[in-house]
């Protein structure tokens, strides 16, 4: 196996680990931002509503790579300017951090919309019933709104995750050594770009297939009494 791919297979797999790391950390950031954005739009005052609204609209209107470049190169300029003022040493913006910030920031907007829809889909009657039983607002949220919301959010969440995984391929453009970047190096060195990009494509399909199993499990877990 190693012979066939000129010993580059481990490098591709190492890149795959980085791809998965970037994807999971971005997902974590996206979940936090998504919950914040959804709560701001549903329960916030006029100011937080506007900020959340602008956030989701602007993010969804600008291509991901433009935002990534803005954060990567712009962040570098910003850090240098601040650094000059305080007399810091030169600081390099890490493509790993820039990639996660951008992807997390983008998918926070999509997650926000998914959660907002899911929270609105929890029936009013159930929430009223909770209050009628004398539950506190917090108890209503943890026992009724949240589990109900999860059930409605799973399909949208899963869809966002699949798009997010594919978006991680863009970090190779800002120089992060993910599996796409490593495939380019291996492909160029061995003059077999087709072979290596096909391998990486297949690995992306593998991630998708594994995620699919994960979603089936989640759906079963939260199906309690549904249809």
């Amino acid at each position: 196996m190693n012979e066939i791919f000129g010993g580059y297979l481990p490098m591709i797999l190492k890149g795959m680990v980085l791809t998965v790391e970037v994807a999971l950390l971005s997902l974590l950031l996206a979940l936090i931002l998504g919950i914040l954005a959804a709560s701001a739009r549903l329960y916030g005052g006029p100011i937080s509503k506007t900020i959340a609204g602008v956030y989701t609209t602007v993010i969804r209107g600008i291509p991901d790579l433009v935002l990534m470049m803005l954060i990567f190169f712009g962040g570098q300029v910003l850090v240098n300017k601040v650094g000059d003022k305080f007399g810091w040493e030169y600081i390099d913006i890490d493509p790993f951090v820039a990639g996660i910030l951008t992807i997390g920031f983008i998918f926070g907007a999509y997650m926000g919309e998914t959660f907002r829809g899911a929270i609105m889909a929890v029936s009013k009657g159930e929430i009223e019933a909770g209050h009628a039983y004398g539950m506190t607002g917090f108890q209503v949220f943890t026992h009724i709104t949240f589990p109900g919301m999860i059930r409605h959010a799973i399909p949208g969440f899963f869809n966002n995750w699949l798009v997010l995984v594919k978006t991680t391929a863009l970090v190779s453009v800002i120089g992060l050594e993910d599996m796409v970047f490593n495939a380019k190096i291996a492909g160029d060195t061995l003059r077999q770009p087709f072979t290596f990009y096909m391998i990486v494509g297949a690995l992306f399909l593998l991630i998708t297939a594994v995620s699919d199993l994960g979603m089936k499990w989640l759906e079963r877990r939260y199906k309690l009494g549904g249809h």
Binding site: T167, T168, L170, S172, P193, Y197, M198, V200
Partner: peptide
């Protein structure tokens, strides 16, 4: 699969 990979396969691959 990412569109980036698809475009790389067609252009470079």
């Amino acid at each position: 699969t990412p569109l980036l990979i698809q475009i790389f396969i067609i252009y470079y691959g």
